[in-house]
């Protein structure tokens, strides 16, 4: 078999729906929009956990903001009958991710746990992935960001401080997943149990609108939540097969 046909076989297998079923985990998140109050606690928690820089007013005006999770606001109607709804938006960890097909150096790829990985030291900063991403959740480091002293003391040592020219995005808190797997291994347990590990945004959500877990575990909270009749996925018509499920807001 030639190298090319081997490559193409691997590629077809990789893009086929259900490919990730043969592995141990398939990390998934659900977001209940009925419970979301738009308080942005998740945004702050993410900022603290993942060493995300504060870019400042001028850079923000140029559209160079950094927030791996953001709250989008939607207004409906006119005052006094205006209605406001929120939707938290972060990397959807699509199983058929458009960003992965375009990276020329393979810095972003899908790993066996259903995570869309971003490998910072391999990234050369073409920003093609950000163009391909339909959710607009990839953020680029235009500068080497600095933390005013003593703020650099609160940086998370388990997360890289990204340098200039590197693309970054939500990782589902890979450092916490790794930690949970480490603990599970110590206890001679094969799998990480439900609720053992939560990303920073899920942990901090005051209304418990965000649920995180392993889709493979059918007893898990996230499995029940993602099969809720209200569930939908953002831009599902693009066939991205994303791992973040939203539960629709129901008007009373």
């Amino acid at each position: 078999m030639s190298l090319f046909s081997r490559f193409m076989d691997g590629w077809r297998k990789y893009r086929k729906p259900g490919y990730y079923d043969e592995f141990d985990y398939h990390w998934t998140m659900t977001i209940d929009l009925d419970k979301c109050t738009g308080c942005e606690a998740c945004v702050t928690a993410c900022q603290a956990e993942n060493n995300i820089p504060v870019v400042g007013e001028d850079e923000m005006a140029k559209g160079r903001e950094m927030q791996w999770i953001r709250i989008e606001r939607y207004w409906e109607g006119e005052y006094p009958n205006a209605k406001l709804s929120f939707i938290p938006m972060m990397c959807q960890h699509c199983d058929a991710a458009p960003c992965e097909t375009v990276c020329p150096v393979g810095a972003t790829y899908h790993n066996q746990d259903g995570l869309n990985a971003q490998i910072y030291n391999r990234c050369i900063g073409t920003r093609a992935c950000a163009v391909y991403c339909p959710y607009e959740v990839r953020y680029f480091n235009y500068y080497d960001h600095e933390w005013d002293s003593p703020l650099e003391q609160q940086l998370n040592p388990d997360v890289t401080v990204r340098g200039k020219g590197v693309m970054e995005k939500c990782t589902f808190c890979i450092q916490r997943i790794r930690q949970a797997k480490d603990v599970a291994k110590d206890d001679d347990r094969r799998r990480v149990q439900d609720g053992e590990m939560q990303p920073a945004c899920v942990q901090t959500c005051p209304t418990k609108a965000l649920v995180f877990g392993d889709r493979k575990d059918h007893e898990s909270q996230v499995y029940k939540s993602m099969n809720d009749p209200r569930n939908y996925r953002v831009l599902d018509e693009l066939n991205t097969d994303s791992s973040v499920f939203y539960l629709k807001k129901v008007d009373a």
């Binding site: 790829y109 790993n111 066996q112 490998i119 910072y120 030291n121 391999r122 890289t160 790794r178």
Partner: peptide, 8 residues
């Protein structure tokens, strides 16, 4: 040999 095993 998965990247995310060692890269963070």
């Amino acid at each position: 040999i998965d990247c995310l095993t060692c890269h963070k």
